[in-house]
Simulated assay, not measured.
Amino acid sequence: MGAHQQRLASDQAAWNAARRLPKFSYAALAAEAGVPIERATRLTRGWVRVGVVEELGRVGSNKLIFRVCRDVETPPQSRPDQSAEGNMWRTMRALRAAFTPTDIAAHATTEAVRASTADAQAYCQMLVRAGYLKVARKAVPNRREAVYRLVKDTGPKPPRERRLRVVWDDNLAEVTHLPVAGSGGEA
């Protein structure tokens, strides 16, 4: 059996164990399935992300407890965000201490996703404005790039800039948010 088949069999064993247990912690799942606790943790977090396992809270010595909330036969695969922003964010989280836009673009580009240095630079600048990155070394135009450091790691999903549709009322000096389509606010 190849490494990929072994991993799939291990994932299936862990999923079957999670389905058998009424509630479980990372350690309990690891013991029941015979997988390393790091693997049990990674799988459980992925199952929570795709909505088949729910976190019930902390008990005892502050252990997180989970339960299967949507029983399916095979374990769902939690795929990371396959976008330029997703790849750049994962790269930043891995490099953490010091990186340039060129570093980010080089590590974030795959066969399926292209991240240019300009894309990486724009993403870094947006994250600096939002407080996720700090400038470790300023850029010198035409000589060297800025070096950034990740200071706010909020998890695996990439922070994204969004544009909001609002109405500005000069009479009241306030903003009114437009309802999102499908939220029942249309006329």
Rank of each mutant, 00 (worst) to 15 (best):
F66A: 04
R160N: 05
S83T: 15
D169V: 12
P158M: 10
K23V: 10
C124L: 03
V151F: 01
A33G: 02
K157V: 10
G2N: 15
V135A: 04
M88Y: 07
Q77W: 08
V166I: 15
W47I: 06
G155T: 11
A106Q: 11
R49D: 14
A28Y: 00
M1P: 08
E55S: 13
A18R: 03
L56F: 00
T109G: 03
P75M: 02
T44I: 04
E85N: 15
Q121W: 09
E55G: 12
E145S: 11
P141M: 09
P75K: 08
N142K: 15
T102A: 15
R79M: 08
V166R: 15
E161M: 12
N62S: 11
A120E: 09
A173F: 03
G155V: 00
F24R: 00
A9D: 14
P76I: 04
Y26L: 01
V113N: 07
Y26K: 05
Y148M: 08
V167R: 12
A18T: 10
I104M: 06
A98M: 04
R144I: 07
A112N: 06
N62V: 07
P159E: 09
R114G: 00
V135K: 06
R149M: 07
Y148H: 12
K134L: 11
A3W: 04
D169F: 03
Y26R: 02
R93F: 08
A30N: 02
N87T: 04
A120L: 10
V50F: 05
P22I: 04
R96S: 09
T91V: 14
R49T: 13
W168R: 02
T109I: 09
Q125C: 07
R42H: 07
V35Q: 05
E54P: 01
A18L: 06
A14V: 04
L172C: 05
A13I: 04
M88I: 14
L43D: 13
M92P: 11
P141W: 08
T44W: 08
G155F: 06
G155S: 02
I65F: 05
I65Q: 04
V72K: 05
G2Q: 02
E73C: 00
F99Y: 12
R19F: 01
R114Y: 11
S183Y: 11
L56T: 00
R144N: 13
P141A: 13
R137N: 04
R163T: 14
L150S: 02
V53E: 10
P158C: 09
F66C: 00
N16P: 01
T176N: 01
Y148D: 10
D169C: 15
M92R: 09
R129V: 07
L172R: 11
K63Q: 12
T176I: 12
V128K: 08
Q125N: 15
A146F: 06
K23L: 03
R79P: 00
L64Y: 01
R165L: 12
E32D: 08
G86A: 11
R165T: 12
V52L: 05
L43C: 00
V50C: 15
V128E: 06
V53P: 10
P36T: 00
A136T: 03
H177E: 13
K134C: 09
D169S: 12
L178Y: 09
R49M: 07
Y148A: 05
V52G: 12
A181R: 15
A9G: 02
A97L: 13
Q121L: 14
R70L: 06
V180Q: 03
N87A: 13
E174R: 14
V140Y: 05
Q125A: 14
Q77Y: 14
